[in-house]
Design a protein around this nucleic acid. Structure first.
Lengths: 142, 142
DNA sequence: CATCACACTCTCCATTTGGTAAGTATAGAA
DNA sequence: TTCTATACTTACCAAATGGAGAGTGTGATG
């Protein structure tokens, strides 16, 4: 979205805030926001991770991998991901039925894009936890 | 989370799936998942972006920047971000009241971590849209 | 003939999320 | 005296989210 977010290095607070260059029209901005809202979903991210790790999984294996997901949410999330072009769904016409799910190039790319966030979360877990405890302690004492 | 997700380049589907090295214990995994769920929230991301772009904003300026957010959600999200150590909250004891919000080092880092996802969304918007249309067309014809 | 496996789909229900609107405290301006 | 600005907080309500569990179709197996 903003160029400030895009560039590494300490962001300059506002040395020249008058410039205000927005390279995107609001339509694109809205679409990007929507897409991120859809894709930054808890289950989507966990399924993405499972598939990136295991390569290709059938429905019930996925259900095992993504601990705690209900059948309903697994189906629902996989359908959305298929619609968005993140996974392919291969139905083997056998009985009992067998369906394999696999990440597309698009899905793999998104998985890589999320790397940064995973790494940040891992790296700063304790810092965040400490901040929370300090905050809660302050709140209690007042 | 997974090393596959962490490394750029086409992920190897499963040349040696037997290895299965998980460097993280489930506790950390759960914490990271929770943290990401909290932080990958729509409003959090938009506030993060506004603050990264503008540097420091008071409550009502933020409300203007983050289009469509309600007072309630703005307050709520800012409190969570403060608790997590992402923003600082500076109260100026004047009347009418004035409160300034600013990203911490931690908050800036998270903003940068999200870059990848914003860029991915921007870059693949049309691809996703095309996939959706194709999917919907298929669904209708059946 | 009953059972099981598998990948769903559907219904019902509880929780969560989030919006709207009203209230609060304070001092200066009209 | 009333109005305004500001940053909230609270109460209420509607919508979305998501879990539990039952139902479905089919062929192999006991």
């Amino acid at each position: 979205m903003s160029d400030v977010l895009r560039r590494p290095g300490p962001a300059q607070p506002n040395p020249m805030p008058a410039v205000e260059h927005r390279p995107l029209d609001p339509r694109v901005e809205r679409l990007v926001n929507d897409l991120i809202g859809r894709v930054a979903d808890k289950w989507t991210m966990l399924i993405l991770e499972a598939l990136a790790e295991k390569g290709e999984l059938r429905f019930s294996r996925l259900a095992d991998e993504v601990h705690g997901i209900s059948q309903k949410m697994l189906t629902q999330t996989l359908r959305q991901m298929e619609r968005d072009g993140l996974v392919t769904r291969t139905i083997h016409p056998v009985i009992p039925p067998r369906v394999d799910y696999k990440l597309t190039r698009l899905g793999l790319g998104l998985g890589q894009a999320f790397c940064g966030v995973w790494l940040w979360a891992e790296a700063h877990l304790e810092e965040v936890e400490a901040s929370r405890q300090a905050f809660d302690a302050r709140a209690v004492s007042r």
